[in-house]
Amino acid sequence: MSCEHTQQLLDAYVDGELDVEKSLAIEQHLSACPACRKRHEARRWVRVAVQSQARYFTVPDPAVRRIQAHLDKAGGGGRTLPARWLSLAATAAIAALLGSGTTFWIGRTSSEDLLTQEAVANHSRSLMVAGRITDISSSDQHTVKPWFNGRVDFSPLVVDLTAQGFALVGGRLDYLDNHPVAALVYRHRQHLINLFVWPDDKSAAAPMRAFARHGYHVLHWSGGGMRYWAVSDLNPADLKAFGELLATQG
């Protein structure tokens, strides 16, 4: 591949938007061309700068209250919703769970569907209730892992993947699939990931499977006697990269 062509495709390359063949051609060119390597480095740096320094603005509470008040007037549905965003959002999570639960009972049932629902609802709740995201907040795996001693009857794999772009935020106890589970929280850019971990009753490892539900992405797999369910609003490609990093650690 020529320098010119490489430069044209460099952004698509750093964004993971190229097919395998073109990505390989670029990698080959980069390994042979110092000038393009420098351009590639510069590109990665500008991305790091923006992702780490540009602010992600979150909606202020009063703005949410105004929207609710407007909907109350416009809709007139007579639903009295809690005034606070956090409660409202928790209501949404429960509504999501109930809403799709209905589909679940009427339609095709599978434990995977049900677990997906539960995991997404747990994820939403953890985000919406202030202070609920972690029971133990630490980026140190040697602090987070022992915290689960005596709280669950298994020892989850806890790894910090900060170097790979997924910083460990902490852990908490959650409940999923009729078990107490370890919930590990990671952050990638502005996105939080909940990783639910609990022992697998099957001995065989299960390959990775991905789903989307209500705007969240879900990824699950099992291996080493543990089940792993990851939920996030992160894009599927990055979530998959996260899962693959963990799967290789386990």
Binding site: F57, T58, V59, L88, A89, A92, A95, A96, H214, G215
Partner: peptide, 9 residues
């Protein structure tokens, strides 16, 4: 609440 709210941020 199900469709819009999760993406308000």
């Amino acid at each position: 609440e199900r469709v819009v709210l999760p993406h308000l941020n």
